[in-house]
């Protein structure tokens, strides 16, 4: 398999995993457009074990999708030799360079802010009710931070050039 084909696969993966990742985020925005604080009763709902399993699977899906998206993006920049220039915001690589920083921040947000707190909300990590309620506020703000950051990130991705590799 030559590099052009690998690049095409990376682009495809980048789109696919990116849609799965950020799509979950936007689904959350559409389902809950306004912040509604959780109550202690929400955490002791009889359906909560089932809900916990569903949310855990959903979270795992988009958490790993974020890694695939990030790796595919870095691969595309690396194999072109553009990664150093992008990271140093040089010339025409500056827009996608800013995109790399925003995307990296978003992935770190998912793994190191959202997920540790979500584990407490879901009860995967034992925590008192007041702590779980506090964590639900943090997961909300963390999730919406990524919603907000995805807007400039998608703009910066769209502002790059397109190679037309399939028909070359």
């Amino acid at each position: 398999m030559d590099m052009a084909m690998l690049d095409l696969l990376a682009r495809w993966l980048h789109f696919l995993a990116g849609v799965i990742w950020v799509g979950h985020n936007y689904a959350s925005v559409v389902n809950r457009p306004r912040w509604r604080p959780l109550a202690a009763s929400d955490l002791s709902d009889p359906d909560s074990p089932k809900l916990k399993e569903v949310i855990n699977r959903e979270h795992g899906t988009f958490r790993w999708a974020s890694v695939v998206t990030w790796c595919a993006g870095i691969f595309m920049l690396w194999h072109r030799g553009w990664l150093p220039g992008a990271l140093q915001l040089q010339g025409t690589l500056a827009p996608i360079g800013v995109g790399v920083y925003i995307g990296t921040l978003m992935m770190l947000n998912v793994w190191f802010v959202l997920w540790p707190h979500q584990k407490k909300v879901l009860g995967l990590v034992p925590a008192p009710v007041h702590e779980r309620l506090r964590c639900s506020r943090i997961t909300h703000l963390s999730s919406r931070t990524n919603t907000m950051l995805s807007i400039p990130l998608l703009f910066l991705m769209a502002s790059g050039s397109h190679g037309g590799y399939l028909l070359r």
Binding site: V29, R34, W35, L141, R144, T147, M148, I151, P152, F155
Partner: peptide
Amino acid sequence: MRHPYDNALTTVALGVALTAVLAALLRLLA
């Protein structure tokens, strides 16, 4: 305490505003 992220519209508005600022900065520094 209310936060702009508590409303979907203000969240999107912040994203659009940040996009405009970054785009302007990139044009300025290009």
